[in-house]
Simulated scan of single mutants.
Amino acid sequence: MNRTARIYVAGHSGLVGSAIIHRLRECDCENVIVRSSKELDLRDQTAVNHFFATERPEYVFLAAAKVGGILANSVFPAQFIYDNIMIETNIIHAAYKSGVKKLLLLGSSCIYPKFALQPIKEEYLMTGKLESTNEAYAVAKIAGIELCKAYNQQYGTNFISVMPTNLYGPNDNFDLASAHVLPALIRKFHEAKVNSNSSVDIWGTGKPRREFLYIDDLADACLFLMDEYEGSEPINVGVGEDISIAELAELVAGIVGYQGNIVYNAQMPDGTPRKLLDISKLTALGWRPRIVLEDGIRKTYQWYIFDNLESQNL
């Protein structure tokens, strides 16, 4: 990817997009294009086509998406499938029409079957039933992968799909109604410490296992793959190690400094029992993550306290 090229980051203000912007600036990329959701509604096909025809980006990072945890996915499935399919369809088609050199679609590890063999290889996609608590989002992301594959096949485009594991880091969403598990735990334990609560309630049994990738590592992997990977098959991005939710809760509580009890509410859903990605395809290309989980959580908690709490009145 030519560092002087026009590079469009869709979803630049979100967790993934903001990290990609930061990494691009570190690489001295001079022509990074962004638009807020107020300036450009990515669900509006006419507006997206006009944007691409006017701005003529050469490379696209498609990080824009409607995202959320188990609660948000359960309550708003129609919005999750509609918004994400519209965003992907409009950008991918406009990228083809305007002659974009390369596009990178950010997907999610939730695309894989609920009971997939572990660690999960890319070829396990669509070999089993999805986890019901995030099925709408997963279907939309699978549609994005298939769009990239179909456009590559029919039109000769160079569109790639990247499937990251669970992400976390600065600029994450800490709203308990829509947050993923790690930022939700950070907020819960912080508030419990501040309020001297005797216990913290956590959804599920604590038994499911998850893999967590620090957002700066994902951004670095995205730039690496934009340079080094071509192909229609998705490629996993992760760390190759997982941890139980109970172990994660203990780790977060320790970093935050909360010393009360942790109570697991087994009446609430656990989600997928285990989700660990096979990253051998990526490591064979020469990329590996650098941030270990404990260090990443400390960085995220520091950001939450000093950069985010006051502005969001949390």
Rank of each mutant, 00 (worst) to 15 (best):
N166H: 14
G144F: 10
H190W: 13
S132K: 13
L185R: 03
T127C: 08
H93Q: 13
F159N: 00
C110T: 15
N166F: 14
F115T: 11
V139E: 13
S161F: 05
L167S: 01
H93C: 11
L185F: 11
L182Y: 00
K102D: 05
G107T: 14
A140H: 10
Y168I: 06
L125Q: 00
K114T: 04
A136G: 04
L167E: 05
I91T: 12
A177M: 01
S109Q: 11
G156M: 08
Q153R: 15
L147D: 11
N173F: 00
A192R: 03
A179E: 05
P164C: 10
K149V: 07
N171I: 12
T133S: 11
E122W: 01
S161N: 09
D201N: 09
E131D: 15
A179C: 03
I142A: 10
A136R: 06
F115R: 12
K121I: 08
T165R: 01
L106Q: 09
K129L: 10
D201C: 02
P170C: 09
L104R: 06
K114Y: 08
V139N: 11
G156L: 03
N152D: 07
L130P: 12
E191K: 00
Q153H: 14
A179I: 10
N84C: 00
Y168M: 03
Q154K: 15
I186R: 03
G128A: 02
I120V: 15
D175S: 12
G99Y: 03
V181F: 13
K102A: 08
Y137G: 05
Q118M: 05
H93A: 06
K121S: 13
E88H: 13
S198M: 09
P164Y: 02
K149G: 01
E191P: 01
A179D: 04
L105P: 04
T127N: 09
C110H: 14
